[in-house]
């Protein structure tokens, strides 16, 4: 288990659930550069553990994860009183309409298909949705 952030609630705290190490590294670098505090985890199960200890301002959620999928994670946190209102942005390699439609049933802020974005454009979109939501 990775070291969990001591920040309980901060408007600039993002929990990134992404199992690819290279992508996590890039995402962390980019978000920290513009002032976000980032917690990284590689699985949905680990993400659920982290949510017991803190409330991020946004969850950056991948879908294809080892074990519980991102969509199962989403369904699960929406059923929990403590986590049901946490903002979530899905960031996936899959642009399948079925997955987008399923995710949107669980009040996500937006659904991003990784391959459609340059990294800076994606970070800008994420910052924007945090600010306006």
């Amino acid at each position: 288990m990775r070291k969990v952030s001591k920040i309980k609630k901060s408007p600039k705290h993002i929990l990134v659930i992404e199992d690819n190490e290279s992508l996590s590294k890039i995402i962390r670098l980019k978000l920290e550069k513009i002032g976000y505090h980032v917690d990284l985890c590689e699985s949905a199960e680990e993400g659920l553990e982290i949510l017991k200890k803190c409330e991020p301002s946004l969850i950056w959620l991948d879908i294809y994860l080892p074990g519980m999928s991102g969509l199962q994670f989403l369904e699960k946190i929406r059923k929990n009183k403590k986590t049901k209102n946490i903002k979530v942005a899905v960031v996936s390699v899959s642009g399948s309409n079925k997955k987008i439609e399923f995710a949107q049933k669980f009040s996500i802020l937006d659904y991003f298909v990784k391959s459609n974005y340059k990294i800076d454009e994606l970070i800008e979109e994420i910052s924007k949705i945090i600010e306006i939501s």
């Binding site: 290279s22 992508l23 890039i26 670098l29 899959s94 990784k114 391959s115």
Partner: peptide
């Protein structure tokens, strides 16, 4: 599907690294 998605992830990582 799974194999193509698995292929895509390292490609995205390379693309973003090249941009940086």
């Amino acid at each position: 599907f799974f194999a193509y998605h698995q292929l895509r992830t390292p490609l995205i990582s390379m693309k973003w690294m090249a941009e940086m």
